[in-house]
Amino acid sequence: MSIGYALKRATSALRSAMDERLRQLDMTVPQYSSLELLAHRPGLSNAELARGVFVTRQATHQLLAGLTREGLVEIVGAGREQRLHVTQQGLQRLQRASTAVAEVEQTMIESLSDRDRQSMLRGLSACADALEHAEK
């Protein structure tokens, strides 16, 4: 089996498990990812959020419409000066979602030793860095 196939298989399994757990919290993976990113980097633009959660700008508009309608994200400013911030209610929902995602991740890596976990993290980071630098 190729490394790329194994990585895709793991990614697909992780996404499915996250979808299932987050659905129980009435949240999607893109919503969770958006809240997580905005909690760590408040004030992002729509375009920055789209890049950060790996969706198109068009998908971000729909995503933000839902998040703002639910009171989880607020948009400050107008036009090109719009900046996104997680609300207090959004932070509370994010905390519950983060716990669920951490449980999924723990299940995924529980059969690995601490050494193997660290090695996997270093390896995956090195792979991403190599491909990101090759694109430039």
Rank of each mutant, 00 (worst) to 15 (best):
Q118D: 13
L124I: 09
T28P: 14
P42G: 09
Q92A: 12
G79Q: 12
G123R: 07
T87F: 08
T60G: 02
S111C: 11
R122K: 14
Q88N: 08
T87C: 00
L44D: 02
A17G: 01
Q95G: 09
I3T: 00
Q62A: 13
R9C: 02
L14C: 12
L94P: 14
S16P: 05
Q82F: 02
R117Y: 03
A6C: 12
G71T: 05
K136R: 14
S45G: 05
A134T: 01
Q82S: 10
Q95N: 02
M1N: 08
V76T: 14
A13T: 14
H133Y: 12
Q62C: 08
R115N: 12
V73R: 06
G66F: 00
A65R: 15
A50H: 05
L37N: 04
A13Y: 14
P42L: 10
Q24S: 07
R96N: 10
E103M: 05
E135N: 02
S98P: 07
E135Y: 11
R93E: 15
G52V: 03
L121V: 15
V73T: 05
H61K: 15
L14V: 04
A102V: 04
T99G: 03
L131A: 15
Q88Y: 12
D19C: 10
G4L: 07
D19M: 10
R21S: 00
A100W: 00
L67E: 07
S34Y: 08
E36A: 12
L38K: 05
A39N: 08
E105C: 13
G71M: 06
I109G: 13
P30N: 03
E36C: 07
D116K: 11
T99R: 07
M1L: 03
C127V: 08
R51Q: 04
R69P: 01
Q118T: 00
R51M: 11
S113Y: 08
E135F: 06
K136H: 14
S113F: 13
A126C: 06
V101W: 09
Q58V: 06
E81A: 13
A97W: 05
D26M: 03
Q31V: 09
M18Y: 03
I3A: 11
L35M: 09
A130N: 05
Q118A: 07
I3N: 09
E103R: 04
A13V: 13
M27D: 00
E36T: 11
P30R: 15
Q58I: 01
L63N: 04
M27G: 05
Q24C: 05
L7F: 15
L84C: 14
T68N: 10
S119E: 15
G77D: 09
G43P: 10
S12E: 03
L38N: 05
T28M: 13
A128D: 04
A65P: 01
Q118E: 11
E135P: 08
I75G: 07
L67Q: 03
E81W: 12
L64R: 02
A47K: 10
G71N: 08
